[in-house]
Amino acid sequence: MRPPLLEQLLAALGPALALAAASASFGRLLGPGRLPRLLLAAAGAACLAVPAGGLPLYAHIRGAVGELSVVTLAALAAAACLAAGGKSFLSRRDLSALAAAAAVSALALYPAAAGAVPWDLYRTGYRPLLPAACVLAFSVWAWRTGRRGAAFTALAALAAFDLGALEAENLWDYLIDPAGALCACGWWLWRVSRAAARRAHRPCAVPAPLRGFEKR
């Protein structure tokens, strides 16, 4: 069992990062200074400690969405860093790779968890030979293709599982959560639809004149 204070801190981390990113983004609209953005991010995160109905605000968010996965936490932390400090430890390519992996996992995991099929992919996460091997393979692929942030994020999720950092005892919960999966699917849908629209509006190539018929 995790110490209560650590549990509360980890539970508040996801909403705090999300609010910090949102507040700092709002701060960017107000001016270029870094300090106001950092202060706004801190103030946004601190809002979660405000009590509401006998519990701090983050406890209500936790009640509704549970704990976020390590991958989503990393993405939120990257967003908060970018919004507050102008730099991020996850590049667009990193996020794209992580989102693709999350979207594919969600499509395989969630229908099975809902009882739509007789097999249960989620149970493979309790003694996670297959998922851990997939994470390791993903991290090697990401490293070799220059997506170092994605590689480290995947390994961080695995390390957090080893340490039992989250409430869950299933590796899948460290890799993916519905909020992150929804964003990942949405992002990929948007990218695919944008690419399709661009292809549809691309001007037709002018055919090259046939050899022998060139104008002289």
């Binding site: 030979l129 390791l136 991290s139 390994l155 390390a159």
Partner: peptide, 24 residues
Amino acid sequence: APRLAFVVLFCLAGFPPLFKAVTA
């Protein structure tokens, strides 16, 4: 340094779940 960090994290994070699953 990043390469070394990657290899160390890969080994430290990757082997315990594989070991646990195989020796369960």
